[in-house]
């Protein structure tokens, strides 16, 4: 079909000069906040920093029937190297998975756990969803923001106190419900749980982190750093067996978790015992 206008379906509406054509040309490269070469599609970052993880990236791919499923873990892997998902990290994943950088970027920007700015040695996440907030989570977040701020300015969401990546640096964020409401208000450091917090205990916690200490989480493995947590999320665990067991066997048995089971034990309450020898039901052979 011959098109009379320049719009979809041949309608003449809007077929005249476009808005762009009626205004003076803008020097888009000149006003761009990023260097001009970054706007060019083929711009390739130096991916050398990822050389040591190529083997791991390939190992992730083998876990799945289709390679693209490896993308989320691979983005965690990339964060274990750079403490964030950079443009280079995006290109690395794209190259490993035969995707375009745009496809990877679309995914990386969708999920909260992929950070665009380099994280501190530790990521401190404060639950400020309703239940924790009412028990003090909002106060904790506020206290930490003030305590970690500098020059009279509060530290904001996803901002870092100290030089990102350097020892003792801390990135602060408020988080949505962390599935630990019975232990609220909760904080996570590098995704390990610190339960039943108060503003005072939280301030003491970040002070210890800044001083290079590794306080033990209430539930979770002995504390390491954000990048190690990201490596584990990519599915790579300590290779030394003793270290590995120490992480797996890190505590989990909170009083709250066990409350019902303990109450039942104390009172002698049980479910009805199984009957003897219950066969599987008979079904007609097809």
């Amino acid at each position: 079909m011959s098109s009379t206008g320049s719009t979809y379906g041949g309608s003449g509406v809007g077929a005249g000069d476009t808005h762009q054509a009626t205004v003076r040309d803008t020097d888009v490269l000149g006003v761009s906040p990023v260097p001009a070469e970054h706007l060019v599609a083929e711009y390739v970052e130096d991916l050398g920093v990822f050389d040591p993880i190529v083997g791991k990236a390939q190992a992730i791919i083998t876990r799945y029937p289709q390679s693209r499923s490896a993308l989320l873990p691979m983005l965690h892997l990339v964060q274990s190297v750079e403490g964030r998902v950079s443009q280079a990290g995006i290109q690395f994943c794209a190259a490993q998975l035969d995707l375009t950088a745009a496809e990877v970027s679309a995914v990386a920007t969708f999920y909260t756990m992929y950070k665009r700015k380099t994280c501190g040695e530790h990521l401190v996440s404060v639950c400020t969803n309703t239940l924790c907030a009412v028990l003090g989570g909002d106060d904790i977040y506020k206290a930490l923001g003030e305590h970690l701020g500098s020059d009279g300015k509060k530290l904001g969401h996803n901002e870092t106190a100290g030089e990102p990546g350097e020892p003792g640096s801390i990135t602060l964020e408020h988080a949505e419900c962390l599935a630990a409401c019975d232990l609220g208000p909760v904080i996570q450091v590098n995704y390990e749980f610190f339960d039943n917090q108060t503003p005072e205990s939280a301030v003491a916690l970040v002070d210890a982190l800044r001083a290079g200490e590794k306080p033990a989480p209430t539930r979770g493995a002995p504390l390491r750093d954000f990048r190690t947590a990201e490596l584990e999320l990519a599915g790579f665990w300590p290779e030394d067996e003793a270290d590995y067991r120490a992480t797996v066997d890190g505590p989990s048995a909170a009083v709250e978790t066990l409350r019902g089971a303990k109450l039942a034990e104390d009172r002698g309450w049980t479910a009805v015992p199984y009957p003897d020898d219950v066969p599987l039901p008979e079904v007609e052979k097809k």
Binding site: D249, S252, L258, A261, A264, W269, A271, V272
Partner: peptide, 23 residues
């Protein structure tokens, strides 16, 4: 709990949780 009424807490999924290294 009575003969026809289950106990107020019926540990099934949670019955191993109190055991050491239950995991």
């Amino acid at each position: 709990p009575g003969p026809n009424k289950p106990a107020p807490v019926t540990p099934v999924l949670t019955k191993r949780w109190l055991s050491p290294t239950s995991w």
